[in-house]
Amino acid sequence: MNYNWNWGIFFEASPEGTGTYADMLLSGLIWTIVTALCAWVIAFAVGSVIGVMRTLPGRVPQAFGNAYVELFRNVPLLVQMFLWFFVLPEVLPESWGTWLKQMSNAPFYTAVVCLGLFTASRVAEQVRAGIQALPRGQRMAGTALGLTTAQTYRYVLLPNAYRIILPPMTSEFLNNLKNTSVALTIGLLELTARARSMQEFSFQVFEAFTAATLLYILINLVVVTASGLLERRFAVPGR
């Protein structure tokens, strides 16, 4: 392979003038992590609500929950990014649209909202499956003791459902983390975008991508380890 390797490139100053290429990649890593965490907060909250709605006895919340999941699951994430970033400001009343367009850090906020609501549909699937995997008698036992529906979910169903779905939720979190890279198309300077600009500036394409790859693998290991600890921390004795 006639390619001129130059691993020292990371310690050369980047043309942005604020530090080395390594600094550039690290800042990308931080944006990736921050975006993923913020989006996860939305995904977890909205996804839990939607997932619960799909297990309620009423027809209306069920239909709403199903519609939400179908809508967000059947449109590619990239298209959703474009809708939030390019289309939403145009279809809102003009003053709102202008405000959105002039917002500083717009790619970040857009990515967080878009990714959060997208991932929420996947979280909702897991939460619904977790609740439905519980024996029917658990809900009845809560109800029979006089707990309201909300209390039954809060104290009986959800604590058990979350324990069951911790492993699939870990993969959803990792998907969410990897999906932050889609936001490079709307200008978010996350890790993949930074590796790409390093390649464009320095032409050291494989060094840049290798570094990004290693960083992604590192985050994955950290998340998987943390999830294992969480699982042990919340394990129920006797099961």
């Binding site: 990897k178 890279s181 889609v182 790409r196 991508f209 990004a212 790859t213 693998i217």
Partner: peptide, 11 residues
């Protein structure tokens, strides 16, 4: 499975 598809596409 630990890499984002976008990065793999570039790779």
């Amino acid at each position: 499975r630990s890499l984002p598809l976008v990065l793999v596409i570039f790779w």
